[in-house]
Design a protein around this nucleic acid. Structure first.
Lengths: 227, 227
DNA sequence: CTTATACATTGACTTAAGTCAAAAAAAATA
DNA sequence: TATTTTTTTTGACTTAAGTCAATGTATAAG
C-alpha cells in the first residue's frame, strides 16, 4: 500500500523533503480500530508511535476503582503514543478508539533514524511534545486549582471560540466530557442544570447554546455558580 | 567567563562533540538567583531556556486565590523553561528559586541552530520532554484519581527508594510538599499525624522514618487510612 | 537572649463533589 | 415498531478535604 498522500499532509511531517516522505510511507504500517477498541494499555511495551488518519482516539488513565481521567482526545492528523519512542519504553496511559479509526504506526528505530537525518522532523516533534506539555500544565491547573463549574465554563467557551459559534455541538458524550474535565457524569449533569437555570446556556442533548457569555467568562475566570 | 566544564557534564548535552560544547559555552549566559527570587512568571515572553547549575527551583501554577500547585522541583543539571523554546512563546508556569541558585540561560535561536546541526542534541531534548510528559501523566492521575493519603504514601516510598534508606529527610518543607501533592499544609499535617498514630511512620521535623513499609505500600496502592 | 517572622499543628466548621440507587430519556439492535 | 442497552438526570446521603482561627514550635534577626 502507498500512504504517501496521507503522510505528506500530516503537520508533524511538514517541511520534510520528498525522499523522507517516501521513506516514511515505506516504514508506516496501517492499523484500523473499530469504535471501543483498545489500541494500547498503560504499561504495554512500545516500539513506535501512531498517527491518527481518521476517527478519534482517547488517551486516558484509570483508577483502581475504574474511574477514568481522559488526558487528551486525539483528532485526525495528530500523532499519539510518542512518549515511549523517546523516553522509557512503555506507554504511560491507555488509548482507545472512540470512533472507528485508521492509524499509521511508525517504528521507533526508523523514526530515530529519520530524526538523525532531518532536523525539521526533530523540530516538529519537539514542538509537538512542547505543546502537549503546555496542555498538561493547564490540565493540572484545572484539576488542582479550579472547581468543576469553572472548568466546564472554560471548556464551553473554548469550543465556542474554536468553532466560531454560539451554538456548539459536543463531539463527545457527556460521560466523556465529565472524564475529560476530571469529574463524573452526575456532577456534570447537575452543573449543566445549574447553568441552564441561571440562564447562562441552553442544552439540547449535545447542543449547547451560549446565552450569557459574559457570565460564562466570569465563571471561567473564577466567579461562583451558587444555587 | 568560560562555562565549558559546567556544560560538558549536563545530561542534556551528553554526546555532543567538543565543537558544540564550545559553541554552547559561548552562547550561555549565567544568571544567579537568591532564594525566593522569581525567575520567570507564567505568561512572560521567553527567548530561551535555562539549565540549573546549582541550587533548586520550583515550577508552579497559582490560582486566583493564591493557592499554589508545584509542577516540578528542578534539581541541579536539569533544564527548565524549555516549552516556549519549541512551542508558543510564553512560559506556561512560574519559576522561583527555593535555594540560592545558579543557572545558565541558552537563547532559543542558538539552540535551534545547534539542534539543526546535531541530532544527538535533538534526541536528548526529545527524551527530556518525553520524560516530563510521563511525569505529568502521573501528576494528573494523582490529582484526579487518588486521595491525598495515597499520594503521600507513594511519595514517601519513592524518596525512600531513591535514597535507599528507611529514614528519609525531606529536602523541601511541608508547605511545599503539600503544594507538590496538590493539597494544603493543614491536610498534610493531619494525614502525617494519622500515619504516625497508625504506626506507619515516625516524624521528627523533616525526618520521616518508614516503620511499616508494607502498610505504606498498600496505602499507596489504594487502601484506606481510616481514623 | 529576646523579639520577630515564618512554619506547623490542632480544633471546629463548611463545602464541593463523590456514592448509591432509581427513574427517565435516548440510542442501538432485533 | 418493539425491546434492549446505554446514557443522562434526579434525589438522598456521605465524605474527603477545604476554610478560618488559634496556638504551638522552630528559625532567623536584632
Amino acid at each position: 500500500m502507498d500512504f504517501k498522500d496521507s503522510i505528506r499532509y500530516i503537520p508533524l511531517f511538514k517541511g520534510l523533503p520528498d525522499r523522507q516522505i517516501e521513506e516514511l510511507s515505506r516504514i508506516a504500517i496501517r492499523y484500523s480500530f473499530l469504535k471501543d477498541r483498545i489500541i494500547f494499555s498503560e504499561g504495554d511495551e512500545a516500539d513506535g508511535f501512531y498517527v491518527l488518519i481518521s476517527g478519534r482516539v482517547k488517551i486516558y488513565k484509570l483508577s483502581k476503582e475504574g474511574k477514568e481521567q481522559i488526558l487528551h482526545i486525539v483528532e485526525a492528523q495528530e500523532p499519539f503514543g510518542e512518549v515511549p519512542a523517546f523516553a522509557g519504553k512503555r506507554f504511560p496511559a491507555h488509548a482507545e478508539a472512540i470512533e472507528d479509526s485508521i492509524t499509521l504506526f511508525f517504528p521507533r528505530d526508523a523514526i530515530v533514524q529519520l530524526i538523525k537525518n532531518d532536523p525539521s522532523l526533530a523540530l516538529n516533534m519537539l514542538a509537538l511534545l512542547s505543546l502537549r506539555l503546555r496542555q498538561f500544565t493547564v490540565l493540572v491547573e484545572d484539576l488542582s486549582l479550579k472547581e468543576v463549574p469553572q472548568r466546564l465554563a472554560a471548556y464551553i467557551l473554548l469550543i465556542g471560540e474554536r468553532e466560531k459559534t454560539d451554538e456548539i455541538e459536543l463531539n463527545i458524550n457527556k460521560k466523556q466530557l465529565a472524564s475529560l474535565l476530571g469529574t463524573i457524569p452526575e456532577t456534570m449533569s447537575r452543573i449543566l442544570g445549574k447553568m441552564v437555570s441561571k440562564g447562562l446556556i441552553d442544552v439540547q442533548g449535545r447542543r449547547i447554546k451560549l446565552i450569557d457569555k459574559k457570565a460564562l467568562e466570569e465563571l471561567a475566570y473564577g466567579a461562583k455558580l451558587d444555587i
